[in-house]
């Protein structure tokens, strides 16, 4: 087992562990914080994958915006739900079953197919992932359209969220 593999395993364990804590936590605020941990672990995964930009964006957007948003939402909806009572609904076992089955299915397909058994190609000299990414995002031959559409989507979401959550008192 090479060093990279060991690091990967540790980070993967952290990710999975925090993810389990997210869905199993008794207090909702704890779940949100465990989500932050999960997201951070995922950023580390990105780094391991030489996708540095993604790691940074993950931290900034997911943790910096989305997780904060979750915490705000939890705080704003705390009237009745004082972290008491069961956190899982009556059919949680069915959900667990489904999750298990899904994982088992995916695992059996993925682990035992030879297509995924490859090693990464070494990065070429002078490889600049960020500028390539930037080119890809704004080049008309590449993905400028989805990029623009995504921005429109964000605008729509922004407007929509404001409107939906608007307090009309």
């Amino acid at each position: 087992m090479s060093l990279q593999q060991i690091i990967f395993l540790v980070v993967a364990a952290a990710t999975v562990g925090s993810a389990i804590m997210v869905v199993a936590s008794r207090h909702l605020i704890h779940a949100a914080l465990w989500l932050v941990a999960t997201l951070f672990s995922v950023a580390v995964i990105y780094t391991l994958l030489n996708a540095g930009f993604l790691a940074v964006v993950q931290v900034v957007i997911y943790i910096g915006a989305i997780a904060i948003l979750f915490i705000f939402a939890v705080m704003l909806t705390r009237r009745d739900m004082r972290d008491t009572g069961p956190q899982h609904n009556r059919n949680w076992w069915l959900g667990a079953l489904i999750g298990l089955v899904t994982f088992a299915g995916l695992f059996s397909v993925l682990f035992f197919s030879s297509a995924f058994n490859k090693t990464p190609a070494p990065l070429p000299a002078g490889y600049d992932a960020v500028s390539l990414l930037g080119d890809a995002l704004v080049s008309p031959n590449a993905y400028v359209l989805p990029f623009e559409v995504a921005s429109v989507l964000l605008l729509a979401a922004l407007v929509g969220a404001v409107y939906v959550a608007f307090n009309r008192k």
């Binding site: 609904n89 059919n91 069915l94 959900g95 489904i98 089955v101 899904t102």
Partner: peptide
């Protein structure tokens, strides 16, 4: 909603 999802996933499986 969760019941709907459960049902959908069960049938899908």
């Amino acid at each position: 909603v969760q019941n709907y999802m459960l049902l959908a996933l069960l049938i899908f499986m």
